[in-house]
Amino acid sequence: MKPISAQLGLIILLVLSILTSCKEEDILVKKPDGNGTVSYFAKASGSGVKKTDTKSIKPLGSVAVEWSAATVYVEKIAFEGKTSHLLDTTIFVGKNINIFNADALTGVIQLPTGAYKNVKVKLFARKSDKSEMAFNLRGTFINTKGGRDSVVVGSSYPFEANLQVPDIIIDSSDKYRVTFNFNLDKVLSDISTELLQTARSYAGKDNSLMYVIWKGGSDEEPFYDQVIANWQTVASVEVSKQ
């Protein structure tokens, strides 16, 4: 019986060794849990934008504006994406963003690791409690007589940019940069110089005029509805891994 007991003992030790090896292997192949970081930025682009390298073709028939200032008051940003389950999260920003600053940080969120599909990002803009507009743009253009006039485009009404984002895979400690790109060439699409000069205007210095397409109340504002329709195509999104 002793030889049999010794043989049985060896078998038990061998089985335990195999089980231990399997557990260690499971530990080695197990992916680490954690979060990745997604940082949101906003910037202006377009052929009429100063201090940017981005170039674009102006829509035919549109007034050629050289934009000199642009802000968007970002209330919040919402992220939605599907992994093994739907992740829907919102971060509150509450900042007036100067989109002429290419590194204008709007917010940062932490996302659990995983492969995100059908990703959607929404940027909500509105008028702030400090009277900062949902968006406020200023620039100059050459009028039909060859002189230089200015234009102000703005709104205190809420604005939402609803954007589709490419699928992303987030591993632990990954850092992603999501940039909201506002192409200002599209703000006055199909509004010619001649049409713009029929908008509400005010006398400025050196006999120049300041044309205004701005709405903060219920009064009808010429070209405002067209600007708002154009604004829906102004924003796009770029995703890059840092």
Rank of each mutant, 00 (worst) to 15 (best):
D225C: 00
D185L: 06
N230K: 04
Y224E: 08
S201T: 05
E221K: 10
K175C: 11
T193Q: 05
A161C: 12
T179I: 10
L163I: 09
L163N: 09
L209Y: 13
V212L: 10
K186Y: 14
I213C: 05
I228R: 09
K175G: 08
L195Y: 00
E194A: 15
Q226A: 07
L163M: 13
P158T: 01
N183A: 12
S208Y: 00
V227E: 09
I191W: 01
N162D: 15
Y157K: 13
W214D: 15
N207A: 12
I213W: 02
V187S: 07
F159T: 11
F159H: 12
V227I: 15
T233Y: 06
S201D: 05
N181L: 13
S218H: 13
D174A: 05
S192G: 06
D219F: 02
M210G: 09
F180A: 10
F180V: 08
L195P: 00
S173E: 15
S189F: 02
K215I: 07
N181A: 07
P166F: 08
V227K: 07
F180G: 05
V187W: 04
I170W: 10
N207G: 05
S156Q: 13
S208L: 00
L196A: 00
L209F: 13
I168M: 14
I213L: 05
V178C: 08
G204T: 05
G204M: 05
N230D: 10
A203R: 07
D206Y: 09
A199I: 03
V187T: 10
S173H: 12
Q232P: 01
S189L: 05
Q197N: 02
K175Q: 15
Q232M: 11
S192P: 04
N183L: 12
Y157T: 04
S201P: 00
E220S: 13
S172F: 00
E221M: 11
Q197D: 01
A203Q: 11
I191Y: 01
R200E: 13
S201G: 00
L209K: 15
Y157E: 12
V178W: 03
